[in-house]
Write a protein that binds this DNA or RNA. Structure first.
Ligand SMILES: [Mn+2]
Ligand SMILES: [Mn+2]
Ligand SMILES: [Mn+2]
Ligand SMILES: [Mn+2]
Lengths: 147, 147
DNA sequence: CAAAAAGTGTAGCCAAGGCTACATATTGGA
DNA sequence: TCCAATATGTAGCCTTGGCTACACTTTTTG
């Protein structure tokens, strides 16, 4: 007999509310993670991260990017000088490195499971922001013991 | 030697922009998926889905729920009668069933990989909305050939 | 059956994250 | 050099998805 024929019961209210809450919190942080990762990539590749480049990469308008850079600065993740691009604070760099490592691990796991490469890259862009540390550890362990 | 010592190159601009775009689109649909899934669960379990119950389950205010129900109605996923709760249209039921099946499959895969149960449930709540059909198929295939 | 409690609806506020339009600054090429 | 192209900044608008406050309806209960 295959696992589970009876559907799982609905979770208790406070549990379910807590899960949704955390998912909302993760989502509200997602954009910042993508930005610092991208900014760090641009800084490494070209030495600078300009609003226009970021906008092109993200597929949004430069005005949107400028506004979000404001949020990055408010949250202590980036600095910028007028007409001189964006830079990451130490906190920003730390977050960028964590985000990049997690992004790659997610892609690797999806691929190992048999997800086609482009789908893995596509889905990872959204998935990555909802991977808890516990899941991240499980992913790393899973990859290590892969054939 | 372990796989990949050189970091992957940054994707070309249009590719990366398309990925981010799709991830944003998926996110904008996420709330609707959670709502119809939850409404369908409540209808099945208790015969009705009231705004207050939904609010308690989601951990938001009832006013927020009422407003979102408006969006569900605009998008043709639900109907409601004043002071008489919410119901799903056929389109809403279809989406609810798809969402629930996907949700369960995601949890099953995470668990199979070795993610602890509560982390699997927690992360799935956010992850599920970024699983493409291709990834879904790969997940199903992966589970089937598991020991 | 009336009063209290619970549920629902509505208004108005906020922040995030999109956009366009336009003004200003910088940069590169003739 | 200076003018055109490019980049940047700013303003104002929109939708989504949160919230509180308050009014109204329905249900429960003494
Ligand atoms: Mn990423
Ligand atoms: Mn991402
Ligand atoms: Mn779900
Ligand atoms: Mn969800």
């Amino acid at each position: 007999m295959l696992k589970s024929s009876t559907p799982p019961p609905m979770p208790a209210e406070p549990t379910q509310a807590r899960r949704f809450s955390k998912a909302r919190a993760a989502q509200s942080y997602a954009l910042l993670e993508d930005y610092v990762e991208l900014i760090d990539d641009l800084l490494t590749a070209t030495g600078e991260a300009r609003a226009t480049d970021i906008a092109r990469r993200l597929g949004v308008s430069h005005a949107t990017v400028v506004k979000t850079i404001g949020r990055l600065k408010r949250e202590g993740l980036a600095t910028s000088l007028p007409y001189r691009g964006v830079f990451l604070t130490p906190a920003g760099e730390t977050l960028a490195n964590k985000s990049r490592a997690r992004h790659r691990l997610v892609v690797a796991v999806l691929t190992a499971i048999g997800v086609p490469p482009e789908a893995a890259e596509q889905d990872a862009e959204g998935l990555e922001h909802h991977i808890s540390p516990a899941t991240l550890r499980a992913f790393a362990a899973f990859l290590k013991k892969q054939p």
